[in-house]
């Protein structure tokens, strides 16, 4: 009998991995991705976050930072159409969205920079001086 979770017989750890994936991240309903999807990039002295938010006006985006949590929220407005318009196909969603990203350091407001280009949001968060690795000098004894 085929166990529903254990479909890949070549990988004996598949079940364990799938369980680990379920625990990873704050996603409430698995399978339903949250909006906006984000990519997180790591650099030596900064962290960059990119998110695809097509159709959201600059004025409708709100980025806030508190302690080590960066929150991106906003609203995507419905397309403006005349009353006589009829829908044939509707695949894009509209409404409010909010996404919180926890970073491994305390965010300094003055070190956050955000840009919006072609519906892609880019946020760069600089790591505070205190968080940067310090070189430790080794003395010859």
């Amino acid at each position: 009998m085929l166990h529903p979770f254990y479909t890949d017989r070549r990988d004996p750890f598949a079940l364990l991995h799938s369980m680990m994936r379920d625990f990873d991240g704050p996603r409430m309903a698995p399978g339903q991705p949250s909006f906006p999807a984000v990519n997180v990039w790591q650099g030596d002295d900064a962290v960059a976050i990119t998110a695809e938010i097509p159709g959201v006006e600059l004025s409708e985006i709100d980025i806030s930072a508190k302690d080590n949590v960066l929150t991106i929220s906003g609203e995507r407005k419905e397309p403006q159409l005349p009353d006589t318009a009829t829908w044939h196909r509707r695949e894009r969603g509209a409404g409010r969205f909010s996404r919180a990203i926890r970073l491994p350091f305390k965010i300094d407001d003055s070190k956050v920079e955000a840009r919006l280009a072609n519906g892609v949001l880019r946020i760069a968060v600089g790591r505070p001086e205190a968080d940067l690795p310090r070189k430790i000098e080794i003395k010859a004894a």
Partner: peptide
């Protein structure tokens, strides 16, 4: 790309979502 298609008296409007495309 996700697409909305709307019919208006003048014709058809397509709203196509393509983030990152200029």
């Amino acid at each position: 790309p996700f697409t909305d298609i709307v019919e208006t008296p003048e014709g058809v409007n397509l709203i196509v979502e393509m983030p990152g495309v200029s």
